[in-house]
Amino acid sequence: MPLTSMTGFARADGESGTEAGLVRWHWELRSVNGKGLDVRFRLPSGFEGVEARLREELARHLKRGNVQATLTVDRVRGAAPLRVNQDALDAVLAALASLQQRIEVMPPRPEGILALKGVLETCETEEDEEGHAALEKLVLVSFSEAAASLARARGEEGRKLERILSDQVDEIERLTRQAAASPATGIEVIRTRLKAQVAELLGASPALSEERLAQEAALLATKADVREEIDRLIAHVAQARELFAGGEPAGRRLDFLTQEFNREANTLCSKAADVSLTRIGLELKAVIDQLREQIQNVE
């Protein structure tokens, strides 16, 4: 199983016909890197009660990342039924009867009376609790689809990211082996340099005791030998490849490993007494820094 990125985008749409009309909804999920799983929901009024279930569902698919989930709901009202407002109709008819007693007027047509404001009313069908609960269930199903789609998108991005990381680890290994093969790390070169440093030390302080001279020589030898750093770098390369192939979220461990890489590269540079070895150390630090930046996106 490849590594998974924390960067991704997904969407899901749905619709349902109800007595109150047609309801359409739209989910958008976006995720970026984060230390843990931090989710922010933007839900329309009336859907606040499903947030806990949404969080639980998302946690089934993702382990880390900052996620923003937005739900948009549109209601398309159907043709509402009409009813006659009896009170308004009675008032109109009473007014017409009173008017006919005073002046001669043509009898009113029924459609004319019904067209008067307030005589005909539309009956809006309100969504009941059962209908809203059914709608919530459908919206949750759509969210589950969107969460699974987001996980797939992050997986696809992770496969691309893994190729980049593998190339960078390969480059770290190449530079490390180049440092190991450098003439500056050879035993004879170190011995010659050590002799020169000890001679310089004796020239500066001829009265040094044998014990102090041995201590200084041991310290110089430790500073000159980079084989330990090279061995650690090679071990870190192997560990990185194991984490790539592990199939589990490895972002945190890889982030820690880049710190170890950087520590060994810094020590290599500080011990280098040769320009070519310093150059290799600086190239190592540059690649490790690029590796660290990319790993910030790994789940």
Score class of each variant (00 low, 15 high):
L114R: 02
G247M: 08
Q178E: 13
A238V: 06
L99P: 08
D90N: 15
A12T: 00
A224P: 14
L161P: 04
A217K: 15
P110W: 05
A218F: 04
I187Q: 13
Q178K: 11
S142Y: 02
R154I: 07
N33P: 02
R109W: 10
E145C: 10
F256W: 10
A224T: 07
N85S: 12
G131A: 04
R159Q: 14
A214F: 06
I103L: 14
L254N: 05
R53I: 03
D13P: 03
V226P: 15
L284Q: 02
T7P: 00
F47R: 04
V141S: 15
L114H: 02
L254A: 03
Q86F: 10
E145R: 15
L89T: 09
N33Y: 00
Q86H: 12
N85E: 08
E57D: 10
L58F: 05
I288D: 03
L213F: 03
A221E: 04
Q197K: 11
R152C: 11
A91G: 10
S182F: 08
V275A: 14
P206I: 06
L165R: 07
Q294G: 04
E129H: 02
A151K: 08
F9Y: 09
E248S: 12
A184M: 05
Q239R: 15
S182G: 05
G118Q: 01
A10D: 00
E242V: 10
R40L: 02
P183Q: 05
A245R: 15
A238Y: 04
N85W: 07
A224M: 11
D74T: 15
E56H: 09
Q294W: 03
V67R: 08
L219N: 09
M1K: 01
C269D: 08
P2D: 00
S276D: 03
A245T: 10
S149K: 11
E210A: 14
Q290V: 02
F261K: 06
R75D: 05
R241F: 10
E15D: 00
R83Q: 13
G49I: 06
E48H: 04
A12W: 00
I187M: 06
I113Y: 03
K63Q: 15
